[in-house]
């Protein structure tokens, strides 16, 4: 959906070549660390697994610009701490509802589609 964020299997971040910090969504131009002078950030595929930092759902259809499925199925969201990078990334959850989720459980990245078609990253059960 957003070019350069997700390649169908991995989230795409950027790594600062000076301090090695990793950012998502991909950040370019200069490092976000105020103590780092780095200006070269290179694209990097991020860990596909992580642990749930927290989770929730949307019992009511979120407003535009979100496009809801008809009939509406509650969107489940999880914030997942990536295995290697230890950044927490928010995403929709596919194939699991809030009842199935626990803080600390492992999830794996998967591809999902929004109601109006575009492909996005989603969190799903580990395979």
């Amino acid at each position: 959906m957003i070019p350069g964020w997700f390649d169908g299997t991995h989230l795409l971040g950027t790594r600062c070549t000076s301090c090695q910090a990793v950012f998502f969504p991909p950040h370019h131009g200069f490092c976000r660390d105020p103590r780092c002078e780095g200006e070269e950030l290179v694209e990097e595929r991020l860990s596909r697994r992580g642990t749930v930092w927290s989770y929730t759902n949307a019992c009511y259809p979120p407003p535009a610009p979100f496009v809801s499925a008809e009939p509406y199925v509650p969107v489940t969201l999880a914030a997942v701490e990536l295995e290697r990078e230890r950044i927490v990334v928010l995403g929709q959850v596919k194939g699991l509802a809030v009842e199935d989720l626990r803080v600390g459980m492992e999830l794996e990245l998967t591809e999902g589609t929004l109601a109006d078609g575009p492909s996005v990253w989603m969190w799903g059960p580990p395979r």
Partner: peptide, 22 residues
């Protein structure tokens, strides 16, 4: 965040609340 995730403000509040419970 609305377009891709449907993440409303209450969704973020709920993430904090669930984290607090855990």
């Amino acid at each position: 965040r609305f377009r891709l995730l449907g993440a409303t403000n209450p969704a973020y509040f709920a993430l904090y609340a669930r984290r607090r419970m855990a």
